[in-house]
């Protein structure tokens, strides 16, 4: 009896997903509605299209934009954040401007980016960068600003230059917060990747999603959603493992 209960409890977290998936399959079959194909046909399309016909033509370009945009946006966010967080003058100079841009919904800059950069990869990468920039920037600024004076004094005592102090003291001090910003920025990068591909795209997962929908290939549309869900989860889990490793020291502070 207790054993049965233990098994039941371990099934609890996966109970709802299974229920939903089974419900999807059955519902799809019973309703016979073209807008809700049964799960099995979606999975069939997923296998046909993404193993591996569209992997090179759509998934790879998407991932490329995602990685470049994410890394470039993060790097820019860290550099600006450190500058703002460790210099009051820089903070006064560019702080208000960034504060204004931050309040802007990131997707709203897509039309502007299209006008300025056209419909190529540079537009899509820039849009991802823009989305990633602010969560990283804000966290880095806070982290750099909160760096304990004693730590900076230690470095000053031993004659470190301003740049060396930033590299050896401010940056690592801020790292737990920077890392939190990087984590928040991951799903945002994914969102910006998909949205940017919905506009005048020629390839990419977002483009596949939109074009499947426009030709009423509903199973393919759902297949793209599943693919994006899996991708998002993989990226988050991968980052969590990475963070766990490089922030081991921060755990027992």
């Amino acid at each position: 009896m207790t054993r049965l209960r233990a098994v039941g409890r371990s099934l609890l977290p996966i109970g709802l997903p299974i229920l939903l998936l089974v419900g999807w399959e059955i519902g799809g079959r019973i309703l016979g509605n073209v807008y809700l194909p049964p799960l099995s046909s979606v999975l069939g399309t997923l296998r046909e299209d993404w193993l591996f016909e569209h992997t090179l033509s759509d998934l790879l370009p998407s991932l490329q934009r995602f990685v470049i945009g994410y890394l470039a946006g993060s790097a820019l966010g860290v550099v600006l954040g450190i500058a703002i967080g460790s210099s009051r003058r820089v903070a006064q100079y560019i702080g208000p401007t960034l504060e204004f841009l931050r309040a802007l919904p990131a997707v709203a800059i897509i039309p502007v980016a299209v006008l300025a950069l056209g419909l190529g990869d540079s537009m899509r990468i820039s849009v991802i960068m823009f989305g990633v920039l602010f969560p990283v920037l804000v966290n880095t600024t806070t982290g750099a600003r909160d760096c304990r004076q004693e730590r900076i004094d230690v470095a000053r005592m031993y004659g470190l230059s301003r740049l060396a102090i930033i590299r050896r003291v401010v940056l690592p001090s801020a790292f737990p917060l920077i890392s939190a910003g990087l984590r928040v920025a991951l799903p945002i990068a994914l969102i910006m990747m998909v949205v940017s591909e919905l506009v005048g795209g020629q390839n990419g997962v977002g483009f596949y999603l939109l074009s499947s929908q426009s030709v009423f290939n509903i199973p393919a549309m759902f297949a793209a959603l599943i693919l994006l869900g899996v991708l998002g989860n993989l990226v988050n889990a991968g980052y969590a493992r990475l963070e766990d490793r490089w922030l081991k020291w921060a755990r027992n502070l």
């Binding site: 304990r148 730590r151 004094d153 230690v154 031993y158 470190l160 050896r168 502070l253």
Partner: peptide
Amino acid sequence: LVFQDYTRSLFPWLTVERNVKFPLAE
């Protein structure tokens, strides 16, 4: 200078050895 509060003046991300080496690092 040895500071009063080691929790604030030591670098928690560095090992003991690297903390001690810090003044010489540059």
